[in-house]
Design a protein around this nucleic acid. Structure first.
Lengths: 171, 171
DNA sequence: ACACTGGGGTTGATGCATCAACCGCCCCGT
DNA sequence: ACGGGGCGGTTGATGCATCAACCCCAGTGT
């Protein structure tokens, strides 16, 4: 189609395969430890982290969705489950008629404060400690490069050009 | 506890944050493209790839679970959905009483054969082309190092030592 | 004044992931 | 011959992710 080969060459294949497998296993491991030791899921952790950093432990849902990068619907459903478990409360927003406000409960703050150091330890143990300092920096640069490209191509209307969010040659 | 600081230092934090965000966005992008262009999910793709590489397009479920690294239960549920969509069939296994056999249908083979080149293109476009060859190799080495550690610690009874699958100091 | 649009939020349906328990059968030890 | 244990497979329950549609209100244009 676009003149590219059908599949990946050896170097590409090795990189992709290793990256793919590593990533799957790493998330699984981190998620399991988080759940077993803190009773929190990854999205729980993301939401609680955002709330804990906010003044008063309170945020509007759409603010949370910005920092966690969750769709509003996903976030709403997740908040509903978190309310049921007593981690947060959903209150009507005072200065906006149609708005809601999410507030951390005491249990929620306890949960995130006890989970955070464990999380740091796990990230070190399963990822960072396996790498030299040079590799850590290399991984940061790699990630930032890939991320920049993803974000650039994911926002069609931002730089002024009406670029396609799909693949460049033929979409 | 183990003498480690409570949270990550600046270098660690940068690496972790970038890696985390990159990974989330990259999977989202790849998954969306796969779904929109091929009508397949990531697990569909993994299962179909395994089957397409098997002689006759047939495998026992437990064989699939080995190569895809899916739990048997997850795999069973997923296969059920794939059967309903006509991608594979589930047949009683001839030479094993209690066993089943999964076979690729014509539709399943079409799906994977048309999806594979697109997949390769996406992996190149969103990951590999953003990296220099040195970075590709660095990412492969990083991934393999992390993966080796994950796999080693994930199998307590293999080297002879009864090692903990949890963090090393206190589990 | 009135239709339009857009943002914040909600809902329901569907598909995917995980856990726990269970069934049948084979193999092994005694 | 009989009792366990383990493996391949199945089931149901629950939580998470995604999509599409919808509601309400505010601001805007005309």
């Amino acid at each position: 189609m676009t003149g590219t080969a059908e599949w990946l060459d050896d170097r590409e294949q090795r990189t992709w395969q290793a990256f793919h497998d590593m990533q799957v296993l790493l998330w699984r491991r981190l998620g399991h430890h988080l759940a077993r030791e803190s009773g929190l899921s990854e999205p729980d952790y993301a939401v609680l982290t955002a709330l804990a950093a906010a003044p008063g432990g309170r945020m509007r849902p759409f603010e949370i969705s910005v920092v966690t990068d969750f769709e509003k619907s996903r976030l709403h459903h997740h908040l509903t489950r978190m309310v049921e478990r007593g981690l947060v409360t959903r209150e009507p927003c005072l200065d906006a008629p149609r708005g809601a406000e999410i507030a951390l409960t005491a249990a929620g703050r306890d949960a995130i404060e006890s989970a955070a150091p464990q999380r740091a330890e796990h990230v070190r143990r399963w990822l960072l400690q396996q790498l030299t300092k040079e590799q850590q920096d290399a991984l940061a640069e790699i990630s930032e490069a890939v991320l920049a490209n993803l974000r650039a191509a994911g926002r069609p209307s931002l730089g002024g050009q009406d670029e396609e969010p799909c693949s460049p040659p033929s979409c």
